[in-house]
Amino acid sequence: SLGEAEANKWYGQEAESGKPDSTTESVVKFEYASLLWLPVFCPGQPIVWVTCPRLLKRYQRIAGDYVQLKDGTSLKSAKPPANYTGSHTLKALDINGQPKLFFNFGFLTVEKTQDLSAWFPLGEELPAVVVADNEIAMIHDMALYRQSRVALDKEEKKAKKGAFFNTEALPEGTILVFPIALKENQETWQPFGASTGTDIYLGGLESIGFGHCYLTLKEV
């Protein structure tokens, strides 16, 4: 909204064909987003957020120096929750004295519960469970939202040439984290004005409803 010159200042000027050295270095640098908590349908919950130690350790490397635990220590010094640890907000079904969660792929026994709020970027502890590293791939594949899209020909009831495609997306409620770096000695970067968060579209499929996110900035 502040114009192309302001955008080029913060995010760098794009290259122009035939003009060497036409790009400029950005003041703001974005790193890749990392999956942290994946929402999965679970009868009786109805949604459980799932992660694994490898994803938690990646989050720990990103935010470990800046997130404080309730005892005053940093997240960097904390040991990630063990496999099959549930959050205090989880309501597992008690079957023969064992709390269990039922997913489409089978059931999972919750071996213990603990406060997992420090492992949620915004501090709100959701119904959640930690699974093993070698199990998250299957759960991730099961949780993906898949849909076929088509545009019909105006004259016949058939798909337009090249207008049939499949989409695959992360489910609504997925929590991702990514670091943002700023050059030193720069004026304050306020992409959302006075607010620290906003609704935003990421990617090129907003016309069909994909890429809608709520982005929250946490300054450290």
Rank of each mutant, 00 (worst) to 15 (best):
Ser77Ala: 13
Gly18Ala: 07
Trp37Lys: 02
Glu184Met: 02
Thr196Pro: 06
Ser77Tyr: 09
Glu14Ala: 11
Leu55His: 11
Arg146Asp: 10
Leu116Asp: 08
Thr167Ala: 10
Arg146Lys: 13
Glu125Ala: 09
Leu122Glu: 13
Asn104Ile: 00
Val28Gln: 12
Leu182Tyr: 09
Ser26Pro: 07
Lys218Glu: 00
Phe103Gln: 03
Trp119Arg: 07
Thr23Phe: 02
Phe41Arg: 13
Tyr201Val: 13
Pro191Ser: 13
Lys79Pro: 04
Phe30Thr: 04
Glu25Ala: 11
Ser77Phe: 08
Gly3Ala: 11
Asn166Lys: 11
Asp71Arg: 14
Arg149Gly: 00
Ser17Arg: 15
Glu184Thr: 08
Ala128Asn: 07
Leu205Val: 00
Asp65Trp: 06
Pro171Arg: 04
Gly12Thr: 11
Tyr201Met: 10
Ala151Arg: 12
Pro53Thr: 08
His140Cys: 06
Lys161Pro: 00
Val28Tyr: 10
Leu122Phe: 06
Val50Thr: 03
Asp94Cys: 02
Gly106Glu: 02
Gly211Gln: 11
Leu35Asn: 04
Ser148Thr: 10
Pro53Cys: 02
Lys160Asn: 09
Trp189Glu: 10
Ser117Tyr: 06
Leu217Phe: 15
Leu176Pro: 02
Pro46His: 04
Thr24Leu: 05
Ala151Trp: 10
Glu6Trp: 00
Pro53Ile: 05
Pro81Asp: 04
Arg61Thr: 06
Gly211Met: 06
Leu75Asp: 04
Val28Phe: 05
Val177Ile: 14
Lys218Pro: 01
Phe178Gly: 06
Cys52Lys: 01
Asn185Gln: 12
Leu116Met: 15
Ser207Met: 11
Thr167Phe: 02
Ala181Glu: 08
Leu55Arg: 05
Val130Pro: 08
Lys218Met: 09
Lys9Asp: 07
Gly72Asn: 13
Val27Asp: 09
Pro99Glu: 03
Gln98Cys: 03
Phe102Asp: 05
Trp10Ser: 12
Ala194Leu: 13
Glu156Asn: 07
Ile95Met: 11
Phe192Met: 12
Ala132Met: 03
Pro179Arg: 10
Lys218Leu: 10
Leu108Thr: 05
Gly18Arg: 11
Lys158Cys: 09
Thr51Arg: 05
Leu101Glu: 05
Asn8Met: 01
Leu93Gln: 14
Gly72Asp: 13
Gly173Lys: 01
Pro99Lys: 03
Gln190His: 13
His88Tyr: 13
Gly193Asp: 12
Tyr59Glu: 00
Ser26Ile: 00
His140Gln: 11
Asn83Gly: 00
Ala15Asp: 03
Leu108Gly: 02
Leu116Thr: 08
Trp10His: 09
Thr89Gly: 08
Ser26Trp: 01
Glu206Met: 08
Met142Gly: 00
Phe210Val: 00
Thr216Ile: 13
Lys157His: 06
Val220Lys: 14
Tyr11His: 14
Glu172Tyr: 00
Asp133Pro: 08
Ala163Cys: 08
Val40Gln: 11
Pro179Gln: 04
Glu135Ala: 10
Lys100Ala: 03
Ala5Asn: 06
Gly123Tyr: 06
Pro43Ile: 01
Ser207Gln: 12
Trp49Val: 05
Leu176Gln: 14
Lys100Met: 11
Ile208Val: 15
Glu25Arg: 12
Pro171Phe: 04
His140Thr: 12
Pro99Cys: 04
Phe41Pro: 05
